[in-house]
Nucleic acid binder design. Sequence first.
DNA 1: GATGAATGAGAATTCATTCAT
DNA 2: TATGAATGAATTCTCATTCAT
Lengths: 200, 200, 200, 200
Amino acid sequence: MEARPPGRRERTKAQNRKVILDAARRVFAEMGYGAATVRDIIKATPLASGTFYNYFKSKEEVYQAIRDEVALAIRPRLRAARAEATSVETFLSEGFRIFFAFVAANQADFRHLKPDTMRFRVDTPEVLAGFEELRADVEEAIARGLLPAVDADYLMAALVGVGFEMSERMLLRDPPDPEAAAAFATALMLGGIKALPVAG
Amino acid sequence: MEARPPGRRERTKAQNRKVILDAARRVFAEMGYGAATVRDIIKATPLASGTFYNYFKSKEEVYQAIRDEVALAIRPRLRAARAEATSVETFLSEGFRIFFAFVAANQADFRHLKPDTMRFRVDTPEVLAGFEELRADVEEAIARGLLPAVDADYLMAALVGVGFEMSERMLLRDPPDPEAAAAFATALMLGGIKALPVAG
Amino acid sequence: MEARPPGRRERTKAQNRKVILDAARRVFAEMGYGAATVRDIIKATPLASGTFYNYFKSKEEVYQAIRDEVALAIRPRLRAARAEATSVETFLSEGFRIFFAFVAANQADFRHLKPDTMRFRVDTPEVLAGFEELRADVEEAIARGLLPAVDADYLMAALVGVGFEMSERMLLRDPPDPEAAAAFATALMLGGIKALPVAG
Amino acid sequence: MEARPPGRRERTKAQNRKVILDAARRVFAEMGYGAATVRDIIKATPLASGTFYNYFKSKEEVYQAIRDEVALAIRPRLRAARAEATSVETFLSEGFRIFFAFVAANQADFRHLKPDTMRFRVDTPEVLAGFEELRADVEEAIARGLLPAVDADYLMAALVGVGFEMSERMLLRDPPDPEAAAAFATALMLGGIKALPVAG
DNA sequence: GATGAATGAGAATTCATTCAT
DNA sequence: TATGAATGAATTCTCATTCAT
């Protein structure tokens, strides 16, 4: 806004944080979380190495920040949708819709599947906390009479597994269709294979 | 443990390979794949550092060997069971039974979930090939009229997701009960939530 | 040698490069290029091991830098002298004078002969380029009528051989006498053995 | 000659020594003396690593054996020729003829020049001893009145330099012509540049 | 805060050499 | 004598982190 000495980069604190996070997203997507180093992240940035440490303590912390950002963004929406659900159908369908739509909108953070390479998936505590929330919501839904008294832990795991694995396959499609994915997952969880839509 | 004649060449090549793989299994289970180093694996071994490199080129290669061993051990059994299936029920139930039983019998290779820590999952090409086999089997089952003409790719993903996520929860239970897990997963995939057994 | 205020950033980038190159010069001279390791070079330096790699990728690269520095320092002078030559005599005498004087002034970089040991000589691409320059100059001198139409490639080789081998013998003498060496080489190349000065 | 159990390799001690020396020649020519390792030499051999040590103690020793073999083969011939020389002309011409012919016949042991790469030359004590012999012969030739009383050390160096450098250039030609090289070197050393044959 | 060179612990890897068979 | 796997010291090299500017 005001005149600055030339060469002075106009970067705010928040911007730098974002610059690092975005670079890390790219690096993790390209080389996988395990192989990536702080160096790699810095190199993908116009910033100096020391600057990194003004924002994060380690690669792990960056990764957590990314996953947490994602998890914290979606978890409240999922909780709300499930809380408002008035039936098994809406409990499932709204959850899957929100999840697959979110994944499609944030592809870079979810694409971990590369053909013929190792596939890495790393879940942070914040993500795992989302799993626990789902279990709690399942338990509450049981209490509310929405769901039968099933094994909430296993059902949670099944829902999580279906959500994550299907979302990776969804991202391989062109274009990804979150609605269709949600419909598939919902039908499957609701009525089993027999209830699935027949493919055209 | 016991005294040996000095200079006795006591270990064979195959044994050393196994010694390294077993040490790696332990190390990966204890510290997680990402944190483990080749050094750690060697230290968990009575062998010299150089010996490691007579067998494997890197941590990645050891990991692959473990996963591949596992994948190659279970995949033929799964294929056979699915090929012999005469109904949707057996297609699913036998697959889940074999998978969960295998996981329970090889806990160390599957336990990636630690409370309050990050969870790593790394799938090697050989594991991914197992996914493709499942998809092919689903397609064949559709062709054989065993399954309706559903989206085989998504169904494969759902089955994989349910299998892996549920197996991690199963391993947290004491004792793990593969039969119960298989029953749950089968019922869910077959008839949906409504068909699930009601928890005691 | 003297106390310094702690934390003083005392060395500049260019200085460090020089520190490493000088250490390498000493190490190569002492143990020979083949036996020297990066470690040895670092140890001959007040710097940390990692610092080495901020400047050079390997022992080879350091060696090249040294040889290239030497080659790039002397080649223009040789070219100029040969270009200005108005006779065979000056073409040869000025070349040898410059070369032997340079060798005497940079003994450490040229002393490869140790009695009763192997003798290493390693010529980098930059040095080899100097050979080609000499050949080109010979060809031009022929074109200019300064030299008869001899085999320029062989003549170049002969001049190079005489220069390098004689310089090693020169450095063994105490004190080295570049003028005398140049006089000898010039006379030999000009008029053959019969034209050589008779030793006192 | 007699029947042997199958798989038994018919190798004599002398043959194995030769196998190793030949492999080493190839390896040194390919990667240069400095970069080559004992491992590399063994790999270029059908022998086991331990067998190497039945014949040589180190890479250095192999190298010495090669160079020495070469030096010991040629040195007596050179000595004899120089001893029999009755004039400067024959002293020089016979020496160069023998040397260049030998080099041409043993190309692999002398080719150290690769375009655009570093060039290594390593002279063993046995080779250096050959230099001293040449100097002694020069001194004797002076005593015999064959040569003027020149600086024998420098003349030796000049002859060596001309011989080695020219031989490398000779080997680059197709076909190498030792006679022509010898004629050139002899004329140059005898009468200087002016006495050189004019190139066609 | 930003910078980026220096640091040095430690991880990866090589390789000469040994030695049981 | 030949074999070739095991050895582990030595070496190369990386990388998170510090800190003077």
